[in-house]
């Protein structure tokens, strides 16, 4: 989660599609039909090959496979009728084939042939079972995780931004804060965990503090370096035009530093995920981290896979949201740097 490089990953599906004109055709989409066939294959595999240990929800998984296949057939036949959805589906055509192969293979080595040790490796339908039967608990866990993360991330990002701007601007602040930052900053936020749970009145507030701490460090460093690397000519120009220090900070330094600030936001988000999960496992009795811990206690491995999947979706959605915010805020950078 920590190797998030915004300069590499901002290219979205639609722009990539434009680079692959071969995928754009409006006629019958052969690869799509092949992908549909492979999903029909998955469904057939589930229905026709008897399971070593009978499992529920095999039928549901087969139906879902058929629905995916049906969707692919529709897109293959209708061309670009469904706009962006169709374009995106066509772009990910090879992925649909690959996913069918993975799900089918996984099905074979777990439920069908039983090649992998049974309790530790759950079959696809047993994970599906978790989503069907335990969605209430999973859903509330996601909600608690997002809530906790939002609080910690907000305070951490705000504190880091303000600190970064202050030490980037004021020599005196930099003199005092820099050594502290050098000393305390690299300390993993989780190292504070025992102390934080002891000092703070509730484990919830302790977790907010830890997540904020983890977010604040990269945010401070990058905001600071952003402010420090602002072209000095910008200040000279603004000063000759009559700008006061407040204008120089708010309208010159901060906008010029924003690209760096967003790198800090991305890095802070990455580190905050790690702290979130640890804090939930050790302190707060809620959230996806706690769910994982709880599932482990009951040796409910399928629940752990399901929680991991949900967690991955949650983290990548948050990253995507941040990318959207950046794209909107820094739209002036388009054409200036390679996104």
């Amino acid at each position: 989660m920590t190797s998030i490089d915004p300069s590499l990953s901002g290219r979205d599906e639609t722009s990539a599609v434009e680079e692959a004109p071969a995928q754009r055709g409006t006629g019958i989409w052969v690869l799509g039909l092949a992908a549909a066939a492979s999903w029909v294959g998955v469904a057939a595999l589930i229905e026709l090959w008897p399971e070593i240990i009978p499992q529920p929800y095999g039928r549901e998984l087969a139906i879902i496979s058929l629905v995916i296949a049906l969707g692919l057939v529709i897109v293959a036949a209708t061309g670009r009728l469904f706009g962006v959805a169709a374009i995106t589906t066509r772009y990910y055509g090879p992925w649909f084939v690959a996913a069918a192969i993975v799900v089918g293979g996984w099905e074979i080595v777990t439920a069908k042939a039983g090649l992998l040790p049974v309790p530790f490796f759950s079959s696809p339908q047993s994970i599906l079972e978790v989503f069907f039967d335990d969605w209430g608990r999973l859903g509330i866990s996601v909600w608690y995780s997002v809530l906790l993360l939002a609080k910690g991330y907000f305070f951490g990002a705000a504190a880091g931004f303000v600190t970064g701007v202050t030490i980037g601007w004021s020599r005196a602040a930099s003199y005092w804060v820099h050594p502290l930052l050098r000393l305390i900053g690299p300390l993993p936020a989780t190292a504070w965990l025992p102390l934080a749970f002891f000092i703070f009145p509730t484990s919830g507030s302790a977790s907010v503090f830890l997540i904020a701490l983890a977010t604040a460090f990269p945010m401070t460093i990058l905001t600071w370096s952003g402010i420090a690397s602002v072209n000095r000519d910008y200040y000279d120009i603004a000063r000759t035009l009559g700008a006061k220090p407040s204008f120089l900070i708010l309208k010159v330094a901060i906008p010029a530093a924003l690209p760096h600030v967003f790198v800090g936001l991305f890095m802070g988000l990455g580190t905050s995920f790690a702290v979130l999960v640890v804090a939930e496992m050790l302190g707060v009795k809620a959230g996806l981290g706690w769910y994982l811990q709880w599932a482990q206690g009951w040796a409910a491995y399928a629940n752990m896979y399901a929680a991991l999947l949900v967690m991955a979706l949650m983290c990548s959605s948050l990253i995507t949201i941040l990318f959207r915010v950046r794209d909107w805020t820094l739209s002036w950078q388009k054409g200036l740097v390679r996104w």
Partner: peptide, 10 residues
């Protein structure tokens, strides 16, 4: 100035 140095975000 010798360089136009416009603010790129404006």
């Amino acid at each position: 100035f010798q360089d136009p140095t416009l603010f790129p975000w404006r």
